[in-house]
Computed example of a mutant assay.
Amino acid sequence: MNHQHDRALGALYGLAMGDALGMPTQIMSRASIVARFGTVTGFEPGPEDNPVSAGMPAGSVTDDTDQAVIVGRLLTGSGGRIEPLRLAHELLEWERAMKAKGSFDLLGPSTKAALEAVSRGVPPEEAGKAGATNGAAMRITPVGVAFPDTPLEPFLDRVAEACQVTHDTSIGIASAAAVAAAVSRGIDGGDLEDAFGAAVTAAAAGAERGHWVAGADIAARIGWAVELVRGLPERQALDRVCDLVGTSVASQESVPAAFAVLALAEGEPWRACLLAANLGGDCDTIGAIAGAIAGAVSGASGLPDEALATLRSVNGLDLEPLATALLALRAGTAE
């Protein structure tokens, strides 16, 4: 396996790992997690009193992984382009399938509102004009695998295309651009600081795209969140992330929170994902973002073998063909 393929697999499986570790503690407060688990140290089943993850086996992935795979499949099936209405259709079909299985892990607020608008006949370039939560950022990793982040403007075109139908806003695109650029820089061999730099640059440029919406600057908050936790003990750092950065579905909270746990874990994928799981809130998405970036930097060889085996067996995940197909797009872009 070459280094780039290892890193592509690391990004995809890292996303799934962070997602699955955060599954049981999503929508819980940090205090509730401490009271129930002490510290989350591995995959746990969904607690019966968690209205989103109740009954899910330990190691189960959620919408973060499912929707990232949808984006990846659309990219590889359409020569690297995402047709907005096709993405809308695929996401609606995914939600129908989840409802049929009795799942409560469904579409997020911005995505749901946008797809309802599309169903009413609103054109895709208008449907996502208010989407500022983290749905686009959580599923953008395949774009980072498929395309180099330099030159930046063509890369942002691909990010914006993936965002348009649900998160066509300055905040939605900036947050997705940050994640995709960090992943892409890792695929090309960058270290964690390279990934941070790429994320901030892409977020600043991405904020110039889409419909402007009010909210804190994603690039500035990523840089601030990273510095906020440097040198702190883990417990104090996690409390600070919850209290000051925030862990909600708002992009301005959860995306910087993911970069904060990456900094705290010094880019180590398993540790970053565990730290995210102990935050609570939208911690499956925070973990998925952190895991994707850490995995892109470290490669799948930096992920625990037991964790990979669990993800594959519990979810029937086989992400190798997707990684290969996404890298084929990347190779074509570079030619």
Score class of each variant (00 low, 15 high):
Q252V: 14
F196D: 08
V179A: 07
G246F: 06
A181Q: 08
G197A: 08
Q164I: 14
S248A: 11
A216L: 14
A214M: 13
Q236A: 15
A198D: 08
A265S: 00
G215M: 13
R185V: 13
A225T: 03
T247K: 12
E234Q: 08
G246H: 01
V245E: 05
E161M: 15
E227Q: 14
G210S: 11
D243W: 15
E253M: 07
L192V: 10
A204R: 15
L192G: 04
H211V: 11
R221V: 00
F196Y: 11
A219N: 02
A263P: 12
A181C: 07
A174Y: 06
A199F: 00
S248R: 08
W212Q: 08
E266Y: 12
Q252M: 10
P256N: 03
I187F: 15
F196H: 12
Q252K: 09
R221S: 03
G172E: 03
V255N: 09
A216R: 12
A202G: 07
L264R: 10
A181H: 04
A195Y: 06
C242R: 14
I187A: 06
S251V: 04
G246Y: 05
C163T: 11
A176Y: 05
A204V: 09
S184M: 14
L264D: 00
A202F: 14
A263Y: 04
G231C: 05
E227H: 03
T201G: 00
V159C: 00
Q236N: 07
L232N: 01
V261Q: 03
E208I: 02
H211F: 14
A174W: 10
D243T: 05
V226M: 06
G206L: 12
G172M: 10
D188V: 07
A174H: 06
D168N: 15
G223L: 00
D191M: 06
R230S: 01
L264G: 04
A263V: 08
C163P: 09
D191Y: 12
G197Q: 14
V213K: 05
P233I: 02
L192F: 13
A219T: 01
A195F: 03
A199M: 02
E266S: 09
A160I: 12
Q164G: 07
F196K: 13
E253D: 14
A162C: 11
T166R: 05
G215D: 04
V245T: 04
A178Q: 05
L232Q: 10
E161S: 07
G186M: 02
A199E: 11
E234F: 00
R230W: 08
A237Q: 12
V179T: 09
T166G: 06
A257C: 01
